[in-house]
């Protein structure tokens, strides 16, 4: 389901996920080819106080360097970054990260909406965003915002998503460029 071609040159791939996304990310991230020339930034809802570091968990499975963001870290192309648990993540014009410990949004912190909007404000049409499985409606508005700003948007096929609420909420409010299963998502990312 292809609406139009991917925009000039992607500089950031932002991925938002919630319940049921962890396994999908374990499929997707290790298969991204290691010499990518864009930033990968993942906002994944998870338990605060979980002791295992998300960067270690994924770092062992890919040759791409994986980091959990700290405040004012620079987002460098070729790396994978995770938003830390319990902080919202915003991106500054100079492509450093500002963390924010404010109210939850969509019952979530980090909120996918906040990072999607922020990525779009900085990277504009050079943004590629993927919204994965989840049980709430976080990310839908952010994804729509990216689309309105001429970024490229992908929603995980609700038939494939473990929990289809989040993909469906997005599909209710706008039409993304692609609706894809995780295998096609990998293919598309590696074709960039």
């Amino acid at each position: 389901m292809e609406k139009n071609k991917i925009n000039p040159k992607i500089e950031i791939l932002v991925i938002g996920g919630s319940a049921g996304s962890f396994e999908v990310l374990l499929q997707i991230l290790p298969k991204i080819k290691f010499d990518i020339d864009f930033v990968v930034l993942v906002v994944l809802h998870r338990k605060h106080n979980s002791n295992t570091s998300i960067a270690d968990l994924f770092g062992n499975k890919t040759s791409i360097p994986v980091y959990e963001c700290e405040d004012k870290d620079s987002l460098v192309p070729g790396n994978i970054y995770f938003a830390p648990a319990d902080y919202h993540l915003l991106i500054e014009k100079d492509r450093t990260v500002s963390l924010d410990y404010s109210e939850k949004e969509n019952y979530s912190r980090p909120a996918i909406d906040i990072t999607f909007k922020s990525a779009s404000d900085v990277f504009k049409e050079k943004t590629l965003a993927v919204l994965l499985s989840g049980a709430n409606r976080d990310g839908a508005n952010g994804l729509k915002y990216i689309s309105q700003n001429y970024g490229t948007t992908i929603v995980q096929d609700p038939n494939e998503a473990e929990i289809s609420t989040m993909p469906n909420e997005a599909l209710k409010i706008f039409e993304p460029n692609y609706i894809l299963g995780f295998k096609e998502i990998i293919k598309l990312i590696n074709s960039l």
Partner: peptide
């Protein structure tokens, strides 16, 4: 202040 955060606020 961090521009992205304060602009959002």
């Amino acid at each position: 202040y961090s521009k992205a955060s304060i602009k959002r606020r």
